[in-house]
Computed example of a mutant assay.
Amino acid sequence: MDETRRDRDTEGRAHNARPRDGLGRPLPYGTPGVERQPEGVVRAPRETVREAQRLLDAGMPFHAHEVFEDAWKSGPGAERELWRGLAQLAVGLTHAARGNATGGARLLRRGAAALTEFAASQGGDRAPEARGATAYGIGIDALTGWALELAARVEEAGAPAVDAAAEAPRLRADGG
């Protein structure tokens, strides 16, 4: 098969149909790969969190990013920074697992900043036990801390690529 051809969907838009590995890297046509996440799926927020956590736990942060991206594109405007930030954390973990320390750290920090911005937009006057968690139980403070710690660690000289499954964050503040 021609490796340079552009895959198109039924409307003629570019759509890469090449198989991918668990970290989202394209594989040669005809090679068995990890099934891709369907695009444009509208899920309830808790379902989004559950599916993304399943993928993160399986060491597939690239695929989790696609789940968050669907929520980012289909959700209410007031939640866009939340879902965008989570997508950036997943892509940052993807890059770190691929050995791209610079890109991984940059995206982890960008995602942490988006989550911080989202939390600030939700009002900082909530009770201490409610701060840092969304209505969906997502632990904003814990995720931000995880992202910044991992970003610093992957940037250390000689740091190896991370194991995506071992480094997977817990999305929910209650660990669920």
Rank of each mutant, 00 (worst) to 15 (best):
3 E>F: 09
4 T>N: 14
5 R>P: 00
5 R>C: 06
6 R>F: 12
10 T>E: 15
12 G>K: 08
13 R>D: 12
14 A>D: 11
14 A>K: 11
15 H>P: 04
15 H>M: 12
15 H>Y: 13
16 N>S: 12
18 R>V: 07
19 P>M: 05
20 R>Q: 13
20 R>Y: 00
20 R>V: 15
20 R>W: 04
21 D>S: 08
22 G>L: 10
23 L>H: 08
23 L>K: 09
25 R>P: 05
25 R>E: 14
25 R>C: 13
29 Y>L: 15
29 Y>Q: 15
30 G>L: 07
31 T>E: 13
32 P>V: 07
36 R>C: 09
36 R>Q: 15
38 P>A: 12
41 V>Q: 03
42 V>L: 10
42 V>I: 14
42 V>D: 09
43 R>D: 03
46 R>D: 15
48 T>R: 00
55 L>V: 11
56 L>I: 04
56 L>R: 02
57 D>C: 01
59 G>Y: 00
59 G>A: 01
60 M>L: 09
62 F>W: 15
64 A>E: 05
64 A>V: 06
65 H>A: 15
65 H>T: 05
66 E>R: 06
67 V>W: 05
68 F>E: 02
68 F>V: 01
70 D>C: 03
70 D>T: 04
77 G>C: 00
79 E>G: 00
82 L>Q: 06
82 L>H: 01
84 R>F: 08
84 R>S: 12
85 G>I: 07
88 Q>I: 04
88 Q>A: 08
93 L>G: 03
95 H>N: 08
95 H>M: 12
96 A>T: 02
97 A>W: 01
100 N>Q: 09
101 A>M: 01
102 T>H: 14
102 T>C: 10
105 A>D: 03
106 R>G: 05
106 R>A: 14
106 R>L: 13
108 L>S: 00
108 L>N: 00
108 L>D: 00
111 G>A: 05
114 A>D: 10
115 L>E: 01
116 T>M: 08
124 G>A: 07
126 R>I: 04
128 P>Q: 03
130 A>D: 15
131 R>G: 02
131 R>L: 15
132 G>E: 02
136 Y>M: 11
136 Y>A: 13
137 G>S: 06
138 I>L: 14
138 I>Q: 11
140 I>H: 06
142 A>P: 04
144 T>G: 09
145 G>L: 03
147 A>P: 04
147 A>L: 06
148 L>F: 03
151 A>M: 09
153 R>W: 02
155 E>H: 03
157 A>S: 14
159 A>M: 09
161 A>K: 12
161 A>T: 11
163 D>A: 08
166 A>W: 07
166 A>H: 07
168 A>C: 08
169 P>E: 08
170 R>C: 06
170 R>V: 10
171 L>G: 03
172 R>H: 07
173 A>D: 14
173 A>G: 11
173 A>M: 09
176 G>Y: 09
176 G>E: 10
